[in-house]
Amino acid sequence: MSQSLPQLPSIQRVFLESIASSDPEGRFIEVDGILTFYKLVIPQKHQQLLQQNQLIPNEPNKPVILLLHHILGNQYTWRNIMQRLADYTDCNVIAYDRPTFGFTERPTHWEEGKNPYTQEASVDFARQVISALGYEDKKISFVGVSAGGSISCSFAIKYPNLVHSLCLLAPSIMPEDQGPPPIGRHILGSAPGRLFLKAALYRYLPLTSLYHDCNSIPDWETVVKPNYRIPLTLPNFYESLSWLMKHFIPLDILPYKSYLAQLPILYISGDDDKYTHVDKHREIYAEIASVAPPGAKMDFKILSNCGHLPQDESPDEVIRHIVDFLKRVGI
């Protein structure tokens, strides 16, 4: 009786795992058939208990904090705040690379109706990550930047009973008709579009226009910039980015603002956000706040000398505002 040979891992998976092995804090987990790179940090006091082989105290009322990065970013963007968030809140903190980005696998085929590169798929993928890591019985406190902020909001609209709070860093919240025009999505989703993306990103990533002053970030040239550029060298990056652009339709959020207004919301904007002007952020926050019930726990903060990625440029201020807010809303 013949025996079937074990299925070998794909070349892409072998390559990703090999490159990611240089980061000892990262791990892989399979989520809906996609090999997903993530980091999980726990409070330092619990790490000491682990080293002493003691049980970690069960804190059933604590949410898990989930960090969602921006387009063309990855979990590296949270390097300055992950451990501090865990230590200051006594919560476990998770960050992962969304499909297309970082070290997460980039599928080349998918079943009909299960395109992993749509914005809607990103929302359900976040829920699947939480479940795969064993936190399905926990509420989630989201910290999302740019597109990560819009995914956080859409998750809260779809699964309000699973959300503890929203901390939105320069969220990309806009009406659907303000997204990329269909012709633009079609071009970027074509073979010539991929060549354009490859030529442009190889030269310009990370995008300095997203910052107030990227040169103020420690080790920008020697450490930070190379870490953002690593995904450009990984299998199927440009193909998956092209698919993401082709299928990119902004999540429809503001028509459901009354759902968001029921939750604690911290909204942070840089005063020099060149992607979404601070005045537009004010308008979006005011629109959500206008339908909030009496006594709603909402706050809006503007960071000086800061662009579209506050966690990169102003991590100390971001940590201070998030921790103060979460403690105030009862974390």
Rank of each mutant, 00 (worst) to 15 (best):
W220L: 06
V223R: 02
Q12M: 05
P43F: 06
S240M: 06
I187Y: 14
Y159P: 04
S2W: 14
V14Q: 07
D23I: 13
L205C: 07
S141L: 14
R229N: 02
Y96C: 00
S122I: 15
Q75F: 09
D279F: 15
D279Q: 12
L266A: 04
W110Q: 10
E111Y: 12
D324N: 11
G330E: 09
A199C: 13
D23R: 09
K301C: 08
R282A: 12
K158D: 07
L197F: 00
C167Q: 13
E25Q: 14
Q51K: 15
V291P: 08
V329I: 12
I65G: 09
P235G: 06
N227D: 10
L197C: 01
S258C: 00
L16N: 07
P24Q: 03
E239T: 13
R328S: 14
A286V: 04
N61M: 12
Q44E: 12
F248W: 11
L66I: 01
S269K: 09
A132P: 06
T208H: 13
L210S: 07
H70T: 05
Q52T: 00
R320V: 01
P160H: 05
L197G: 01
V93M: 06
V318A: 00
I130E: 08
Q51G: 14
T118K: 07
E120P: 08
I56V: 06
P192D: 02
C167P: 11
Q51T: 14
G102I: 01
Q3P: 08
S165R: 04
L205N: 08
I151D: 02
I34G: 09
S4M: 12
Y267M: 00
P182V: 04
Y211P: 01
Q54L: 07
P264M: 05
G330N: 05
L8S: 06
L263W: 00
K301V: 12
V278G: 11
S146K: 01
L40G: 05
H46N: 14
T100D: 00
I34Q: 10
F37H: 15
P9L: 03
P293I: 01
Q119W: 12
A261S: 00
I253V: 15
I268R: 01
I140A: 04
H247F: 15
Y204K: 15
V223K: 01
Q178A: 02
V318G: 00
P60R: 12
K274F: 09
K297C: 03
A296R: 03
L241N: 05
L49V: 07
I151Q: 06
I65R: 10
T89V: 06
Y76E: 01
I253N: 08
T233A: 12
L205I: 05
F325I: 02
M1R: 04
D316Q: 13
A200P: 05
I11T: 14
N74D: 01
N61V: 10
Q51D: 15
D279W: 12
L162D: 14
Q262P: 02
R106Y: 03
S131M: 08
S314L: 13
T276H: 11
I29N: 11
L326P: 04
D124Y: 13
E283M: 03
N215D: 14
